[in-house]
Simulated scan of single mutants.
Amino acid sequence: MASTAAPRQATLYRMVMEQHTCPYGLKAKDLLRRQGFTVEDKWLTSREATDAFKAEHGVKTTPQTFIDGARVGGYDDLRRYFGKPVADPKATTYKPVIALFGMTALMALAASHAVYGTPFTPRAGEWFIAFSMAVLALLKLQNVESFATMFLNYDLLAKRWVPYAYIYPFAEGLAGVLMIAGALTWLSIPVALFIGTIGAVSVFKAVYLDRRELKCACVGGSSNVPLGFVSLTENLMMIAMAVWMLIAHLSGAGM
């Protein structure tokens, strides 16, 4: 027989004001409903009402969820209540890198299909590296100051000449865009070869010789990606692309 048990009840207090609706309140409400709860949705429609609620219950934040009359807590507390993972903003992770390379690979395959009618061409491999360089540069350029600060922890040239830390993302972006276009190879090849070689040597020394535990500046200055394989791969990809283009250029094959 089908269950006739009534859904469990939850009371949610969240900020819903004329110019602000708390996103965590919306997420908490959605989570409760997906877990089979009916939600008594209590709106805190002013700063005064919110402050009074916090004072009454001795809490510092909203939203706040109550189940069976007992306070569960905020959105993260609610996720823990249901046995769901809660992200640690300080934890190291490779997710940004996986997402980046996954998307640039799909972009390269799509571009190859659009131009040649098939996604699997040598040009797709070249575009994958060039697109990756351009997107990595974009992430660094979102906050050059933050990137430079992190970069100065390990890059050998930047430590000797600080302006290089600010030049690097522009140089990487320029080389990537030129390689996408297959233009000005006389410029893109030496730029990619230079910054890639310096970067690879710097990362290898910092991680594998000095055994330092650092965060990688490869996806921007606010990332929690550990310095090591990913950054080394980024630099080796640039070197490989530059060498590949140089060989093609010298053999007269072009790009």
Rank of each mutant, 00 (worst) to 15 (best):
A2R: 12
S3F: 11
T4A: 06
A5W: 08
P7W: 00
R8C: 10
R8L: 03
Q9M: 08
A10F: 14
Y13M: 10
M15L: 15
E18V: 11
Q19G: 13
Q19T: 15
Y24N: 15
G25P: 03
G25T: 06
L32I: 03
R34Q: 15
Q35V: 02
G36Q: 12
K42S: 11
K42D: 10
S46N: 07
E48C: 04
A49K: 06
T50P: 00
T50D: 11
K54S: 02
A55C: 00
E56N: 05
H57L: 04
G58D: 06
K60P: 10
K60D: 14
P63M: 04
P63Y: 00
Q64P: 14
Q64T: 11
T65I: 14
I67H: 02
G69I: 11
R71G: 07
G74H: 04
Y75F: 04
Y75W: 00
D77I: 10
D77Q: 06
K84P: 02
V86M: 09
A91P: 09
T92Q: 12
T92N: 12
P96H: 03
I98D: 02
F101A: 04
T104C: 03
A105G: 07
L106G: 02
M107N: 08
L109W: 01
A111T: 02
S112H: 03
H113N: 08
T118W: 06
P119N: 01
P119M: 09
G125L: 01
F128E: 05
F128T: 09
I129A: 06
F131R: 05
S132D: 04
L136A: 12
L138Q: 04
L138P: 02
L141I: 07
V144I: 05
E145M: 09
N153L: 15
Y164T: 10
Y166L: 14
P169G: 10
A171V: 02
E172R: 10
G176K: 05
V177L: 14
L193K: 00
I195T: 01
I195G: 07
G196M: 01
V201Y: 04
V201K: 08
S202I: 00
S202R: 04
V207S: 08
Y208E: 08
L209R: 09
R211F: 14
E213C: 08
L214H: 07
C218G: 02
V225L: 03
G228Q: 00
F229V: 12
V230W: 05
S231E: 10
T233Y: 13
N235K: 13
L236Y: 03
I239D: 09
I239R: 11
A240M: 05
A240F: 09
W244D: 08
M245Y: 10
H249E: 15
L250F: 06
G252Q: 12
G252K: 15
